[in-house]
Nucleic acid binder design. Structure first.
Lengths: 337, 337
DNA sequence: GGCAATCATCGAACCGGTTCGATTTTCGAG
DNA sequence: CTCGAAAATCGAACCGGTTCGATGATTGCC
């Protein structure tokens, strides 16, 4: 069922059918109706590959995700789904590609075979080889999180620095004098993962600015690590009365550790950070936190990508989101004494 | 940088380059080397759309996921990533399509535009309109979960019935006489969602076979509902000493309710069910449960799909997985008295 | 009624691969 | 040295769309 068949049955040429469907040249109303009737009757849909070949664009985005082996967090997951929906709004599809590990073949296929018009890269590092590969191919791309030189490329990011600063000041305002940052894994920090690095910097800086004693610890992305990490914090710095975290995956473990230690939140201990809203609400008690706006980031990323595809390599644009802290009930005034 | 350019620089015809790359006809070693040199120098990769058009296949699968609005569970998420990896093993890519809600345009684009060679459908209902649409297009597809007539189509599923049966017998062996099934949401059950329906049947049947008193309740897919649901169970049937569940999302709430009620697991109350292994291990204490093997299901689904694409509409094949129950520490003997 | 401008439609080229039949080259046997 | 078969390569058609320049049919105007 191809365009030639439709043309034959409608008694017109192939080009007329094409113009009737695209509207790129006027076609008489009578002819359009005849063509539409035939199409409806035969259930014709244009072949996407042929169209992509002729137009030189695929109407498809590539979305590069972390490999399955490293478990996706709730935020990341929500982001994937949101990207697909945002792309659908613009009649685009999304091709998934795991990367890292030994998935470079997949990355290659997606990136170099003109399979996609542009790429969205999740979880990038400050120095990311994939960014270099993309840059050298000339394929438009938008990163989630930014690379070392922010002006060099297109990106959408959460302003971890300013959010962590807000969390610290919030705790300082409540009277806390000894606080800790529960960061993501030591490997991530060492490999230059932007959010983790910037969170650390902002944490230490804003604590210093308020004269608060600050400690920071790395913690692997799973509940068991969260539990161990929190118990270590209690034994090393028993004076700590509040924690800030960007490690969602560790939260269940932290919660268990709090419970074991007999600490009530927020009476005995305050907890806040940058956390997906669903997770924050599922916590007991609900977490006061800066909610990561995954849906909006996805929308922005898709829009930036479309812009870049349309305008060519114009000046890079960015979006830095700093959602407000949502006050729930996991932070409270430090008990004096 | 197309095949014609490569041919010109290597001093051969386009077809020779094509044969050199595909190996479908013999090409002299000297020529192959010359072509490879040119390709390496110019960094050529064949255009995927052109190849798809000529070959009549895209080397791409469609993966239909639930819409983002309904939050994906951990199991589902792991499944998506695993499908992508399994497809990559066979040099295929994965195109994502949300469905349900008002995402039918996306489903349409993926399904009817010859964009994919086959489709994997997640979360299907016993009567699923999408299955009918796919059947009528003739596009190969594999469902995760099965439709009413199991012989009619290709699918991979977890044998919820037999797993739930095992859980019930396990509890009966430990001496429990009053047990409850915490099912998924009432809407899902009402809409004929296979796992929920079959879990209910198997639960009641196997309990009856062992002379155990059985209750079953539906519970929405979130922690708050889990908490409310468990408190309701305690007040309606205080004699219940063990629960079986297939509702992962409700687990945190169930855990909280157990804690509030001052019940120790497994001393005072036993808990088991069909749960993703990561979740089961994160629970406190780790859950004795039948682990849903998302990775293996993904691998099987991809293999069945490839088989179906290769063999055409041969006799439908299926895979019904019944992973063993992993004994952890959330079930124990009923205290006599 | 003739002429130009406008509208609708057509035919052919093109996108970049694959594939088939035909042609040229190579090589061994007689 | 010749002939025929096998090996290597070529040229053209094809996949199913889009797009451009050209052609034929209407229409308005003088």
């Amino acid at each position: 069922m191809n365009i030639g068949e439709i043309a034959k049955r409608a008694g017109v040429s192939r080009s007329t059918v094409s113009y009737a469907l695209s509207g790129k040249r006027p076609v008489s109303a009578a002819t359009v109706r005849r063509i539409n009737d035939v199409i409806a009757e035969l259930g014709y849909r244009p072949n996407a590959s042929a169209r992509a070949l002729a137009e030189g664009r695929t109407r498809t985005f590539g979305l590069v995700i972390p490999p399955a082996s490293s478990r996706l967090t709730d935020v990341q997951l929500g982001f994937v789904a949101s990207v697909v929906e945002a792309a659908a709004v613009h009649d685009h599809d999304v091709l998934l590609s795991p990367s890292g590990g030994d998935h470079d073949r997949s990355f290659d296929r997606v990136v170099t075979g003109r399979r996609v018009d542009g790429v969205i890269l999740m979880e990038i590092l400050l120095h990311d080889p994939r960014v270099d590969r993309l840059t050298s191919t000339g394929l438009p791309f938008v990163t989630i999180g930014h690379v070392e030189d922010p002006a060099a490329s297109w990106w959408v990011d959460v302003d971890y620095g300013s959010l962590i600063g807000r969390c610290v000041r919030h705790l300082a305002d409540l009277g806390h004098r000894d606080i800790v940052l529960i960061n993501r894994s030591a490997e991530l920090v060492a490999s230059g993962y932007g959010p983790a690095v910037r969170a650390t910097e902002a944490f230490l800086e804003s604590a210093a600015a308020r004269g608060v004693t600050a400690h920071d610890v790395c913690c692997a992305d799973d509940p068991a690590a969260g539990l161990a990490c929190f118990e270590q914090i209690r034994s090393r710095w028993p004076e700590v009365t509040a924690a800030v975290t960007i490690n969602e995956a560790a939260l269940p473990g932290v919660q268990r550790a709090l419970h074991r230690a007999g600490l009530d939140v927020p009476r005995d201990f305050s907890l806040t950070g940058v956390i997906a809203d669903r997770l924050a609400e599922d916590f007991h008690p609900p977490l006061t936190a800066a909610d990561v706006p995954a849906g909006e980031m996805a929308r922005l990323a898709v829009e930036l990508l479309l812009e870049q595809i349309a305008d060519g390599p114009a000046m890079a644009r960015h979006a830095l989101l700093a959602p407000p802290i949502t006050l729930r009930s996991s932070t409270g005034a430090r008990l004096s004494g």
